[in-house]
Write a protein that binds this DNA or RNA. Structure first.
Length: 671
DNA sequence: GAGCACTGC
């Protein structure tokens, strides 16, 4: 069943007819039998018949239809696209790896043979590989080396409804490659966009009116309830709802509650546990489990453990449980309707992280988490009227981000005019312009004969899988003889924080971390942590004692090795500044000069660039300090406008870094 | 004086 309100898209064509049951003299082997039991199997023939003759197709499939595992195999088995490889993109690494493993099993081949995968740091493909699962970001990276995607005969863009920034850029890249290959008379490129039941018209229109094929799925019915009145306090409402369910429903039925963030979830966890201690006799026990991305793996895994008898699992989660983590056995979903999400204001260059309403699509996604194994129930803690007022879809990431990376990539892809690039959902002209300005300021892009071209520096920057400002920092580092240190710092900054901060043990964390702190700022503090980590060879016990996230630390080593390889390929000299931190700070001043702030007489800070009032983020080691001049990695607007990851610099260095820029700033200030 | 949704190259 479809939840009420989602409804089938208006232009839904005739449902596909089931094919005749296949007659087999002997029963097929179990794996084959399993494949044949999928909802997609009966329509295999018709599906292939359609796709064979098309350049592009949109496939809409509900959860459990089997589209992602079966369609690539059907195409391969039918000899469609045999002249090349079939690429299937996924937004997430784990999904790409899991799907490749599954399909490889079904084909009874060794993973990395006929079926393989390619994700960052992990490539399991060979010359034999004909079905390749990869992250969308990985295919984009490949496209920079080969914009026509020549090795692929079919590109399947899966989970397109999630509209990640990479998928959105890929839409344009594959469309352009398809057109160009046709013009040049090369092997045609077939494009298949796969999505849940959303955005259909948009996808179809974008790919020149590509036909839309629908697949039924296997989802259990879910009852949806709304509140009668709007709730002024969604946390209170969630609490009441959870305990109401708890007192009425059998204890084997678990509850998943969607909340907005770590702090809220930790607070709610504590409240629930306190209340659960004083429940009336005869009421089942309650196991309350928080879930959010920065939680260590070991704690995230607790959600998969079955609760003891007469005990109910209640999982309090961020939107990580919407897509990234599937929790088995959820009967009830409690949806607060709220999410913490990033917005981007191009006029100020500010990213704003704010609690806001979910979209309808997101609300349905949350609801669907209750019907994975059996029928379910979803409580929406808002009125039906409020639901109707929600946006149809979540705004695609590409319209909520700083676009400097995207623009650099498009230029590296030799897109003729990046300002008019054929985006499915166009970012605002201001956002595109702001990104270009940033790239010009960094020296990555030049205007030549009214055209934007990549400078040699810009082309080198595009070789790094990093934000442009970080690539720039690395490329500047040989001048300051500190490439080894900058590689470490940039690697640390480009993964999730290596610092583990359990709120309950705050004092302990602070005292243990003191020994790493550099008065010169966060970059150098992180560097000293990494050096200490290397000195103990990544010892896990050491990480635990020092509240260091060892998983992220290992990742830093991987990133660093990858970046170092790229430096070697670019023939960069790689030197160490050893104990001289001055050069490291000079290098940071030269690459982050547009992100500088100065101490004001009243003790506050203002940016050098636009005189915006800013504050030092509480996570910074400089939070209690008042350095005269700093550069920072970025601004984050929550209650205040905060600078994150700071480095103490000399004001003179900034002027040396970009004299023209600061002269213009001074001029503008006078006028 | 006080805070950081989620991915990915």
């Amino acid at each position: 069943m479809r939840p009420p309100g989602e409804g089938p898209p208006a232009k839904r064509p005739k449902a596909m007819l089931p094919a005749r049951p296949a007659v087999q003299p002997r029963g097929p082997p179990p794996a084959e039998q399993q494949r044949r039991s999928l909802p997609i199997f009966p329509v295999r023939g018709r599906l292939l018949g359609h796709i064979r003759g098309l350049d592009s197709a949109v496939v809409i499939g509900e959860t459990g239809s089997g589209k992602t595992t079966q369609i690539p195999q059907y195409l391969y088995e039918a000899g469609i696209g045999r002249q090349g490889t079939i690429a299937v993109t996924q937004p997430r690494r784990v999904a790409a790896i899991a799907l490749a493993t599954r399909v490889s099993d079904e084909k009874k081949t060794e993973l990395g043979g006929l079926v393989g995968y390619s994700v960052r740091f992990d490539d399991l493909t060979s010359d034999e590989t004909r079905i390749k699962f990869l992250t969308d970001g990985m295919l984009l990276r490949e496209a920079i080396g080969d914009p026509l995607l020549r090795r692929y005969s079919v590109v399947i863009l899966d989970e397109a409804h999630e509209r990640t920034i990479h998928t959105d850029v890929l839409f344009g890249v594959v469309k352009a490659a398809q057109k160009k290959r046709k013009q040049l008379g090369k092997l045609p490129l077939k494009v298949i966009v796969m999505s849940a039941t959303m955005d259909v018209d948009l996808f179809s229109e974008y790919f020149n009116g590509a036909p839309v094929l629908y697949l039924e799925g296997r989802q259990y019915p879910i009852q949806v309830f709304y509140t009668r009145q709007p709730q002024s306090d969604y946390l209170q409402a969630a609490l009441v709802t959870v305990f109401q369910i708890h007192q009425e429903a059998p204890s084997a039925q678990d509850i998943l509650v969607f909340l907005t963030g770590q702090e809220e979830i930790e607070g709610m966890t504590k409240t629930c546990r306190d209340i659960a201690k004083h429940l009336p006799d005869g009421c089942p026990q309650m196991m309350v489990i928080p879930l959010y991305a920065s939680l260590p793996y070991s704690q995230q895994h607790r959600i998969f453990r079955a609760a003891p008898k007469d005990c109910r699992k209640v999982i309090l989660s961020t939107n990580i449980a919407e897509t990234s983590i599937t929790i088995p056995g959820i009967k009830y979903v409690v949806d607060t309707g709220m999410v913490k999400a990033k917005k981007y204001r191009p006029e100020t260059g500010l990213e704003v992280l704010a609690v806001q309403w979910v979209s309808k699509a997101q609300a349905w996604q949350r609801t669907g988490r209750a019907g994975r194994e059996d029928s379910g129930i979803c409580y929406r803690l808002y009125t039906e009227n409020d639901f109707e007022k929600l946006n149809q879809m979540t705004i695609p990431e590409i319209q909520r981000c700083n676009l400097s990376s995207v623009m650099l990539q498009l230029l590296a892809l030799r897109i003729p005019n990046v300002l008019t690039f054929d985006f499915m959902s166009k970012p605002s002209p201001e956002a595109i312009q702001a990104a270009i300005e940033q790239l010009v300021l960094m020296g990555a892009v030049e205007r030549k004969d009214n055209q934007l071209v990549l400078t040699p520096l810009g082309r080198k920057m595009a070789a790094f899988p990093l934000e442009p400002k970080f690539s720039k920092t690395i490329l500047l580092s040989p001048k300051f003889h500190c490439t080894e240190e900058i590689l470490t710092i940039v690697s640390l900054l480009s993964v999730d924080s290596v610092l583990y901060n359990p709120p309950a043990r705050r004092d302990e964390v602070q005292s243990v971390r003191r020994k790493f702190i550099s008065s010169e700022g966060d970059h150098l503090t992180l560097l000293s942590i990494y050096r200490a980590f290397r000195n103990v060879n990544g010892n896990k016990g050491w990480c635990r004692e020092n509240f260091i996230n060892s998983r992220n630390m290992m990742l830093v080593s991987d990133v660093r090795a990858q970046l170092r390889d790229i430096c070697v390929k670019l023939s960069m000299p790689i030197e160490s500044s050893r104990s001289d931190t001055g050069n490291i700070r000079r290098c940071l001043a030269h690459s982050l000069f547009m992100n500088a702030a100065e101490l004001q007489p009243d003790g506050s800070y203002r940016t050098v660039d636009s005189h915006q009032a800013v504050a030092i983020h509480p996570s910074s080691v400089l939070f209690h300090c008042k350095p005269a001049c700093v550069v920072y990695n970025g601004l984050l607007h929550t209650n205040k406008c905060y600078m994150r990851d700071l480095c103490v610099v000399d004001a003179d260095w900034l002027y040396d870094a970009a004299p023209d820029y600061f002269r213009r700033k001074l001029q503008a200030a006078k006028n």
